[in-house]
């Protein structure tokens, strides 16, 4: 039986990418329905709550794309994890607990070595080959 733990970071990476892509796209498509989650302290005269939601959605979509491609997997997972931790703490309740689950998944991905299907792995391999050839 092949070692299934090879697929752990793969499943985690693609699963989280789908979650962030879905939520990010929903925020970009209809930001007005998400303004309820904008923390009060971010209120300012320069950027509206909808713009903050658009920025948040954009960050999550780009983060999802980076997770899919596996470029900067660990730092991206860490940033998304901290981002979700902040949201979980700020929102609280049942939604906060759900976001805490996503946070732990992100942290787990940040702690694991990028799998063989990531650009990170490809580039590190290229570097190894070039180093070996020189």
């Amino acid at each position: 039986m092949p070692k299934l733990d090879y697929f752990v970071p793969v499943v985690l990476r693609f699963g989280l990418a789908v979650v962030f892509a879905w939520f990010g796209a929903k925020q970009l498509i209809d930001p007005s329905t998400w303004t309820a989650f904008v923390p009060a302290f971010t209120t300012n005269p320069w950027i509206s709550a909808e713009s903050i939601i658009l920025l948040n959605g954009w960050m999550e979509v780009v983060g999802a794309a980076l997770l899919v491609t596996g470029l900067w997997t660990r730092p991206v997972a860490l940033i998304l994890g901290l981002h979700m931790l902040f949201i979980a703490l700020d929102t609280g309740g049942a939604i906060g607990m759900r976001d805490f689950g996503i946070t732990t998944a992100c942290i787990a991905l940040a702690l694991s070595t990028p799998d063989g299907w990531t650009l990170d792995d490809k580039f590190s391999l290229d570097r190894l080959i070039k180093t070996a050839q020189s």
Partner: peptide
């Protein structure tokens, strides 16, 4: 290095998109 090129490209797309979205929305 190709990874650096890609990183610069991602940064430009990310920052450009973010600024574009805010300017458009406002």
């Amino acid at each position: 290095h190709p990874k650096l090129w890609l990183s610069v490209l991602v940064a430009v797309v990310f920052i450009g998109g973010a600024i574009g979205l805010v300017v458009w929305n406002e």
